[in-house]
Design a protein around this nucleic acid. Structure first.
Lengths: 206, 206
DNA sequence: TCCTTTGGGCCGACCGGTCGGCCCAAAGGA
DNA sequence: TCCTTTGGGCCGACCGGTCGGCCCAAAGGA
């Protein structure tokens, strides 16, 4: 089952690769199945042999990417904690891991962000579940940090987790698109400084 | 010339309104000109009487929205400074203004974020210019704050500005989509706390 | 006062072209 | 032998854009 499926797996991989790039650039509807096939070096019929529909190909692609991302984030956090680091250090490591991921798979990130907040799309449920996976990893670390008194109890875990994820995603995309001459470290440092209170002194409303 | 153009202006407004919602929900390519016309209560031909093409309608809509947004941000900053507030307080006011804007025009924001990082789209130049407008407002305030020693000279202005804008955009969208029971103040406070160093202690890499 | 013209705005039927999906005989490959 | 891919023809729904014609308030004219 594994050896025999290798060929098929390869084809699928090539199709993911082709689709993610094209859809990131053009959007889902503007991207043709024919185009995807062509870029993957495969016949159109092959797409429909491997996936029930264009939408299914897309959904599997999303699942695939998010699984990778959460795994990386989780690993960054676990490694830090195992090495005796604090939860806050774990957050820092996750930011770096996030940036690294986006650096490696910019197209995926682009596409994820573009689709995430759309309503009325057939893959909405899939996306909501995937978003939950990503945010949950961050939430867990935040909650632990609060429990261990590394962070103030005032921290609103769900909102902060969402803000952190958003900040990293958007910063990275902006970096790729508009400031590509910057290094990953520069971006990471800017974010770390920002969170350190480098833009501190903002007051919460009464 | 003015009285007679009122009718036309109204029609255009209705078309913007209809288009922004539909495109935010479905994306540009999946949204039909017929749909837009129908939702605006107008015939398809009217769309083409008022705009050269579907794309032009979209671009004008983007321009229109971004102009509104930057005006709000600028005003928030100016008001703060005029009232004797610091640059950092101005940043805080801009965050609130951003959230308020997004709260009022969620569809526009959604659509803006979805399209911003796409390459290979005909309206790319338009979008890049518009993005620059938004970021520039924040950059100016940041630069002033550094010059006035309210912020460390270590602050990387372009990256920080992008990160701030991103954080606000994404937090707000996430709030609307996934945590709508929260109030604007809660979101604002979570962001302010985050920037205050509530998640502080992150270290910049050597 | 009544008829006629003007011209901006709008309508909606229509057309050319596109694209997702299906089909299938034949070849390739493990 | 069985799974997978090829490649390309075909269909039919759909969509952007066009265009001739309608509407009507305002101006002009006798």
């Amino acid at each position: 089952m594994d050896t025999s499926s290798t060929r098929r797996t390869t084809t699928r991989q090539k199709l993911y690769q082709a689709a993610v790039t094209l859809i990131a650039e053009q959007g889902f509807s503007s991207t043709t199945v024919e185009e995807i096939a062509e870029r993957a070096g495969v016949a159109k019929g092959t797409v429909y042999y491997n996936f029930r529909s264009k939408t299914e190909l897309f959904e599997e692609l999303l699942r695939h990417g998010v699984t990778l991302l959460t795994a990386e984030l989780q690993r960054a956090a676990d490694d830090t904690v195992e090495a005796g680091g604090s939860r806050v250090e774990a957050l820092d490591a996750m930011i770096r891991a996030g940036l690294t991921f986006i650096d490696r798979y910019p197209a995926f990130t682009q596409l994820y962000v573009a689709e995430l907040w759309r309503t009325n799309r057939s893959w909405r449920p899939t996306l909501m579940a995937l978003r939950q996976q990503v945010v949950a990893v961050v939430e867990t670390v935040l909650r632990d940090a609060v429990a261990k008194h590394e962070l103030s109890e005032d921290v609103d875990v769900p909102l902060t987790a969402a803000a952190l994820v958003g900040m990293v995603l958007v910063s990275a995309l902006d970096w790729q698109s508009f400031q590509p001459e910057r290094s990953l470290d520069e971006v990471h440092d800017a974010l770390a400084l920002l969170l350190q209170g480098g833009v501190g002194g903002l007051r919460a409303a009464g």
